[in-house]
Design a protein around this nucleic acid. Structure first.
Lengths: 247, 247
DNA sequence: CGTCACTTTGAAAGCTTTCAATAGGAGTGG
DNA sequence: CCACTCCTATTGAAAGCTTTCAAAGTGACG
């Protein structure tokens, strides 16, 4: 498990993950020596609006980070996996609530110490910078998805992104429930369910229980996701749909 | 104009802008001495996918930063105002295309030098960090908007966010066209237009030409935006709409 | 003052949501 | 170990909001 974690963490930072074999420094190095604490599924580690005193590193398990509108509507900003860090911001309050989806193990440290250590280290600093850039890129991908993709494209894009994170053949795990997926993709639970059913009926995927999916036709799924260049697809439509962009 | 710019730039960085009176260091200090270049409306400064060799600082004017799906659908990730910086990332390619909406003046420098200078400066480094955090927060606000708000809430939220950036009474300027607003808010141009018309008919706003709006009833608009706590509103609905969140 | 591009408005269609009911899984207790 | 119960997921039908298609209106600019 630890090796897997290290690899996934590496990929976030190294431009060419395949080229790296020996252990490279990662942000998680700041947390060495801290004891890992365990939280049960459903527990919240931090609450939106609370004073942001601590920074956490996910060692094991998956969390959801979300914000809630006053009337109760929830939007999940992202899912946190091993190697991810929560609570990094220059605001004095947490911007999201982070809740365990599965049982999780995390290590924590005071935010002030975290920043001091990272700031003093010539090797750690670029890693924090890279982490923030990764986060920004993920956020932009998500904005593109929410802004311009339909329900099927959203679900397929999500499945593929999970696949990229944890590529073990064509099998992916979905620790989160359908409601989490819906609140992440800007859909309702029913729509997510319908899309999944439809994909399965077309044999593009097959569900294995509620929390695992077999991506049976990856290339077809990539085409559906909306981000495929359509190498074999119709070039015409792509060129004529919208006149590139207005001046 | 310069004074205005400095103020808006300060707000982005200082936790308590009201407390600062004398010139504080800002990221733009890196660009002093660089000549400002002018670009006409419609011109692109950087292209998504191009090698990211340069970092730009907006001196004057407004730009749009966007990504495009293979079939031509466009999503605007954000609008860039004076004091904003483009091209900062640890990827070697630009992630977005940045196009001038109005005539703009920018200052540029090689990315490598930008990073070297920021990295060497004890005062500049936290400013870059703050900039990234600001960007992350804006992205999360946008994800919440795109994920869970309806058309009217989106448009009103946008108008209010512009108002916060450039509060000059109740008047705001919208240098971008309706299509830009639509591609930023995940709507169509027609829907944006309809919402604007509806708001005007209800006298919550009044449009002044195409590029200026008078926010006539700010508190009502805040209530509509979806983010209002509803101090005077019905507390019941907020509490019962969704059972907080599922375990 | 005419042209062109952008915006507004209308009507119909479509996709997603809402409401409702059934089905399925996981955990608990007998 | 199996039955029961509860929570989550799936499915169906109708409603609703936004989009699409189409046309008229408005403003900027040469």
């Amino acid at each position: 498990m630890n090796a897997e974690v290290a690899i996934s963490s590496l990929r976030q930072v190294a431009p060419f993950p395949g080229l790296l074999r020996e252990p490279a420094p990662t942000l998680r190095d700041v947390f060495v020596g801290k004891v890992a604490e365990t939280h049960a599924a459903g527990e919240a580690l931090i609450f939106e609006g609370d004073v942001a005193g601590q920074v956490f590193e996910v060692v094991t398990g998956v969390l959801r980070a979300f914000r809630i509108l006053p009337d109760g509507r929830r939007a999940i900003m992202g899912f946190l996996y091993a190697g991810d860090v929560i609570g990094v911001s220059h605001y004095d309050r947490y911007l999201v609530t982070a809740e365990a989806i599965t049982e999780v193990k995390v290590r924590r440290m005071p935010r002030s110490r975290f920043f001091a250590e990272v700031n003093d280290s010539q090797t750690l600093r670029p890693l924090l910078f890279a982490l923030l850039c990764e986060g920004m890129t993920a956020a932009q991908d998500q904005m593109l998805l929410l802004c311009r993709k339909n329900a099927e494209e959203r679900v397929v894009s999500f499945l593929l992104s999970v696949h990229e994170k944890s590529a073990v053949g064509a099998m992916i795990e979905l620790p989160m429930g359908r409601l989490d997926m819906a609140d992440y993709l800007g859909l309702t639970i029913e729509t997510v369910s319908r899309v999944m059913t439809s994909l399965a009926r077309r044999e593009l995927i097959s569900t294995v229980g509620r929390h695992a999916v077999n991506l049976r036709k990856l290339s077809a799924l990539r085409r559906i996701s909306g981000e495929d260049e359509g190498a074999d697809g119709d070039f015409e439509r792509a060129a004529t749909r919208r006149a590139v962009w207005p001046q």
